[in-house]
Design a protein around this nucleic acid. Structure first.
Length: 258
DNA sequence: GTAAAAGGGATGTCTA
DNA sequence: ATAGACATCCCTTTTA
């Protein structure tokens, strides 16, 4: 709705102003975001719902995902930090714990969160949660981008184009790769494994402590999970080699033509 | 041919 | 001061 957009824009402007004048109290944009949610209209409350989602197998299944993962990267940033810090990322109000000395929410973390958020099901969906492939819904992908931008507290409205640019940076660093299918990407299985245990929402208001997420709980869903990522693991070499070949050829061609 | 999607260089911004 | 992780812009190429 055009009206909605106007309101959103006005609200965004208001947030800008507030942010400019409230740095004394909030040094964290996430904090701002959650603090102001209460006054927002429902359409702006992008990330309010809890992610209490079981790992159901999902909608369309493509069996041609033979080209899977290019390498699990040596992974400097995620090695240990994510394991100990990921749960708060999934809580409804990460801001309270997120204000100082915490890592900022990464795009791939947000996407994973959205994938497990029923309210975002019309914007992004698992293609195959087992191997970590997911796709954006063309009609609503801009909404997801907008939510991401708001979550980060960006000045301007996030668009799919800009978000996809950031996603393409992941091809270099290895967190997420593009697969050939339209609007479809794939998590690095290693990262997927680190994100998966945090799927159960860690709520502050639910004192029911989860059994240590780090501790591998051997239920079968988890078992099949690691099995499938192991499969991805072993198959990436093919993909990687294809890519290498492609790059080599490209380089070779341009050199020989030059 | 067209629109949507994909790709990527250059540069700016924010934060740890 | 610096580097990582985008965010923004913008232009080219590929795909449906």
């Amino acid at each position: 709705l055009p009206l909605d957009n106007d309101i959103n824009q006005n609200f965004q402007d208001a947030i800008d102003v507030i942010q400019q004048h409230s740095n004394y109290f909030y040094d964290d944009s996430d904090y701002m975001y959650y603090e102001t949610l209460g006054t927002q209209q429902p359409s702006l409350q992008c990330q309010m719902s809890c992610c209490l989602v079981t790992h159901s197998s999902d909608v369309p299944t493509f069996k041609d995902m033979s080209q899977t993962w290019p390498q699990v990267m040596p992974d400097i940033s995620l090695g240990h930090s994510l394991q100990s810090e990921s749960p708060h990322v999934y809580s409804v109000s990460p801001a309270r714990k997120n204000s100082r000395g915490r890592k900022k929410l990464r795009l791939y973390e947000y996407l994973h969160e959205a994938l497990n958020d029923p309210n975002m099901g019309d914007t992004i969906q698992w293609t195959d949660s087992g191997n970590g492939t997911f796709h954006f819904i063309s009609k609503n992908k801009e909404r997801l981008a907008k939510c991401w931008g708001q979550r980060k507290g960006n000045r301007k409205t996030m668009t799919y184009q800009k978000m996809a640019r950031a996603l393409r940076n992941y091809s270099r660093t290895g967190e997420i790769m593009k697969v050939r299918r339209k609007l479809t990407y794939q998590f690095n299985p290693d990262i997927l494994n680190k994100l998966a245990p945090a799927q159960v929402c860690q709520h502050e208001f639910h004192a029911q402590a989860q059994p240590q997420p780090q501790q591998p709980q051997q239920n079968f869903s988890e078992q099949s999970y690691s099995e499938s990522s192991a499969a991805d693991w072993s198959s990436w070499y093919g993909h990687y080699q294809v890519q290498e070949e492609y790059h080599l050829n490209a380089g070779f061609t341009s050199h020989s033509l030059a």
